[in-house]
């Protein structure tokens, strides 16, 4: 392995990682928002909207992100909706992630027993106080392991971004290999930078899990 090559590639990979992070972070943030709204619509069985939300979830969970990105990036402009690559990446991730997050949050909500609601209401809490102080916190502490797993899954999924010519880590590695054939160095760097993103997320996720679940489930 040639360390000189590695150090000369470092800045390029660093830049690529920042792009991955930027899009990943935006996509995941919106995935959480979408997931939250869709979960509520599904949980409270809001008429019509709940059906649409169900179709959305099935559709995005059962098609590859790569295909979704192609569709957003190449098909939408054909019908007059201009798309730029970064926006497409974030949107694709948000839509895919939203579907996963929605199911995660919904199963959390469903795990809170109905009688907990009754217990809260019998103490005089109104509906919104019950939701805010009793249902959401319990639902979240049930969902948090799946939530963390979703975040990690979505960050890994960003590796298909190069398909819509985003200069992310994967793009960088393939590009450099094609140009200079330093395959080993390029792949080592690729693994290293993905680990650099994912290990801290996984450690933070663990901490979050332990914090949130301590009250209900102990250590």
């Amino acid at each position: 392995m040639n360390w000189e090559v590695i150090s000369s590639y470092l800045p390029l990979y660093w830049k690529a990682m920042l792009l991955t992070l930027r899009i990943g972070w935006l996509g995941i943030l919106f995935a959480i928002l979408i997931g939250f709204l869709v979960a509520i619509v599904r949980f409270y069985k809001v008429p019509v909207v709940s059906r649409i939300a169900g179709v959305y979830i099935e559709f995005f969970r059962n098609t590859p992100l790569l295909v979704q990105l192609f569709f957003l990036y190449f098909a939408l402009p054909k019908i007059g909706i201009p798309m730029n690559a970064e926006f497409t990446g974030a949107l694709g991730l948000a839509l895919l992630g939203g579907a996963y997050m929605a199911e995660t949050f919904r199963s959390g909500l469903e795990s809170v027993a109905k009688i907990q609601t009754e217990s809260a209401m019998s103490l005089g809490l109104n509906k919104s106080q019950t939701v805010l102080h009793i249902i959401f916190p319990q639902a979240f502490s049930v969902s948090v392991p799946a939530f963390v797993a979703n975040v990690i899954f979505l960050l890994k999924e960003t590796s298909v971004f190069s398909a819509i010519s985003l200069m992310d880590l994967m793009f960088r590695a393939k590009d450099l290999i094609g140009l200079y054939y330093k395959t080993t160095e390029c792949l080592v760097l690729l693994v290293f930078f993905y680990a650099l993103i994912l290990i801290p997320v996984s450690v933070l996720g663990d901490r979050l899990e332990r914090r949130v679940r301590h009250a209900e489930f102990g250590d």
């Binding site: 009688i115 907990q116 009754e118 217990s119 916190p137 319990q138 209900e216």
Partner: peptide, 10 residues
């Protein structure tokens, strides 16, 4: 209630 129904997160 029979099943207490304390709030487990508090």
């Amino acid at each position: 209630f029979q099943s207490y129904e304390l709030f487990p997160h508090k």
